[in-house]
Design a protein around this nucleic acid. Structure first.
Length: 586
RNA sequence: GGGGGCGUAGCUCAGUUUGGUUAGAGCACUCGACUGUCACUCGAGAGGUCGCGGGUUCGAGCCCCGUCGCUCCCGCCA
């Protein structure tokens, strides 16, 4: 039906007789002379209807077509006169002189505009989602989804090239303990029983290793029934990878190559290897496990300096085993009382009791606590003129998240966040467990299948909260791109892990994880892997600010699909067949 | 579950401060004019449950209460 994609025509195509199919992007009727802008996935192209080469009834038909209608056009590619080039169009040096037009898909007047002006705001997101077919016609979204496709192909090409096999895992599966709420699917055949949608293919990919498939990957759909965010959807795609007979360094090298290949697909050169930092250092210096290294503003331990102060707040924090930690902000001394109050509010919302503030001006240290500090202590702070010191006294569990947020906000205020800079980072040696400060209960930081560090187990056999894990996260500019670990391949160790996590009963372990334990007992190779958040990577590389712009049919933050209207009520008979009765008011 | 922002014509918005005549603009749409436009231009026209419900008032787009939707964030979620 078509001979060319109109948006791809260039000066080299001049002279070609073409048949084009596409959408009417804009139309300009000059009276006896009509221009249509035709749009397809390659771009937009001007088609001219002129009595010199177009029959009168064709011109009449062209003048009558509404925008967003689908047309088939016949004509010839001509170079435009040099003074009529349109530098804003990739096809701007040519036009197609039409001899025929057929409206094959007339369109009603669009509810939201597709051809938006240069400075025009796009319609409200609700309308964009409600009229998604129109929204997805916009060149930016076409670009984003086409880039997404290319990133998928680059992933496949890179990993296949390394011998990885793309293997599929079930969507209807068994509830697993990733920590998030599962989506459940009722079984019609087995009354009262449910499948779960996978939060990730974690166990299946480990089983593949036990099967001997050796190198696995999948562009895996994952499902988590939690509240949404700009960067979080109910269903999302992961680049899921697992390999056998490898160690941490093998995974890191492979993953750096993958990142390089993906960024190259978007035209960005990435240097490897990436920087590395231990979890402990990241928490100590930046207060978080995925620091943005585009700026420093590192946290320092000031406990020794403040030890001699007579401030009650400080003394009680230190007495309780806490520390005083703070950030020196060059130039922050010029900030107003109100601006610093705002920073304190941020620290408080993160759980801190308040912010200790000291600034250096004219060689003097000023601030509410300055009088408690000896001249020696004041000098030890190392403040230069104009510096502001913001500190939090208390347990690290409190001060780290508070200083993390303060640090990020200060960086924004100081203009230190350069979007053109990319600082990739591996965070290594995560702790194996997170301990609830009240109950003492352990929870897996990564997941229960991660292998603990064998040296730590040997050194502190009775203190699992001190064990590190063979886990690693890949971080870019403060964002987690992906993470993984070397897994436990010894079924006895795995069983012990379940025990530490509160699943002590053998029968309970077998009921929930028997299929994994059976795989491990059948002879498991040492293995490990990693998973990257594919949507988030696509969002970054497309220059989008919301995941919804790189997902064709996303959900709103209220977990609704506005275009198709999901979720929706279903007939009672359907529920009965599934052995389900709804509760009133639902 | 909690907090913030937004909701006025098909779309983007003004009008809400301090309640007061018939709620406006640009774009889109309809009709007309126009032979090289490219966000075509020009003229005319049509288009409104001011998200929804209730209240206060002589009178509500504007004030009060409730509710719904979208969005950002916290909780939650790697």
């Amino acid at each position: 039906m078509r001979s060319h994609l109109g948006g791809a025509l260039r000066r080299a195509d001049v002279g070609a007789k073409v048949t084009l199919g596409g959408w009417v992007h804009r139309s300009r009727d000059l009276g006896g002379l009509v221009f249509l802008t035709l749009r397809d996935r390659e771009g937009v192209l001007q088609v001219s209807f002129n009595p010199d080469w177009t029959a009168p009834e064709v011109i009449t038909a062209a003048a009558a077509v509404g925008v967003e209608s689908v047309v088939l056009i016949e004509g010839t590619v001509h170079e435009r006169p040099a003074d009529q080039y349109n530098p804003e169009m990739a096809t701007g040096e040519v036009e197609v002189r039409a001899t025929a037009i057929r409206v094959v898909g007339p369109a009603v007047t669009p509810a939201i505009p597709v051809a938006v002006g240069r400075d025009a705001k796009p319609p409200a997101e609700e309308l964009r989602l409600r009229h998604r077919v129109l929204d997805l016609r916009r060149p930016e979204l076409q670009f984003a989804l086409i880039l997404r496709h290319r990133l998928m192909q680059a992933t496949r090409s890179y990993l296949s090239g390394l011998g990885y096999l793309e293997l599929e895992t079930p969507i209807l599966t068994k509830p697993t303990p990733e920590g998030a709420r599962d989506f459940l699917v009722p079984s019609r055949v087995h009354a009262g029983e449910f499948y779960a949608l996978p939060q990730s293919p974690q166990i299946y990919k480990q089983l593949f290793m036990c099967c001997g498939f050796d190198r696995y990957f999948q562009l895996a759909r994952c499902f988590r029934d939690e509240d949404l965010r700009a960067d979080r959807q109910l269903e999302f795609t992961q680049i899921d990878i697992e390999a056998s007979f490898i160690g941490r360094e093998d995974i890191i090298t492979m993953a750096e190559g993958l990142i390089r290949a993906l960024w190259a697909e978007a035209g960005i050169a990435v240097e490897t290897p990436f920087a590395r930092m231990s979890y402990a250092d990241a928490m100590e210096r930046y207060g978080c496990d995925r620091p943005d290294l585009r700026y420093d503003l590192a946290i320092a331990d000031l406990s020794a300096t403040f030890a001699g102060s007579e401030s009650g707040i400080i003394q009680s924090a230190l007495a309780a085993g806490g520390r005083v930690r703070g950030i020196v902000i060059p130039g922050g001394g010029a900030w107003s009382r109100k601006q610093v109050d705002e920073l304190e509010a941020i620290a408080k919302s993160a759980g801190a009791g308040g912010l200790v503030r000291l600034k250096s001006a004219g060689g003097q240290v000023e601030g509410p606590l300055a009088k408690f500090l000896s001249p020696e202590a004041q000098a030890a702070l190392g403040l230069s003129d104009g510096d502001l010191l913001l500190a939090v006294a208390g347990a690290d569990r409190i001060s780290s998240p508070a200083l993390d947020r303060v640090r990020q906000e200060c960086a924004v205020r100081l203009g230190l966040v350069d979007p053109a800079v990319r600082r990739f980072l591996w965070v290594l040696d995560f702790p194996m467990f997170d301990q609830d400060p009240e109950t003492g209960a352990l929870a897996a930081v990564h997941h229960p299948f991660t292998s603990p560090n064998a040296d730590d187990m040997a050194a502190h056999p009775g203190a699992p909260e001190r064990w590190r894990a063979l886990a690693y996260d890949c971080v870019l500019n403060g964002m987690e791109l992906g993470g993984g670990s070397i897994r436990t391949s010894d079924p006895a160790v795995q069983s012990r892990m379940f025990g530490l996590l509160g699943i002590a009963e053998t029968s309970e372990q077998e009921r929930r994880f028997g299929f994994l334990l059976e795989g491990l007992r059948a002879g498991a190779p040492p293995h490990g892997g990693i998973a990257f958040g594919f949507d988030r990577i696509a969002m970054l590389l497309a220059g989008a600010t919301s995941l919804r712009d790189v997902i064709a049919f996303p959900k709103t933050t209220a977990a609704r699909a506005l275009f198709e209207g999901a979720p929706s009520v279903v007939p009672v008979q359907d529920l009965e067949e599934l052995h389900i009765r709804t509760v009133t008011g639902a």
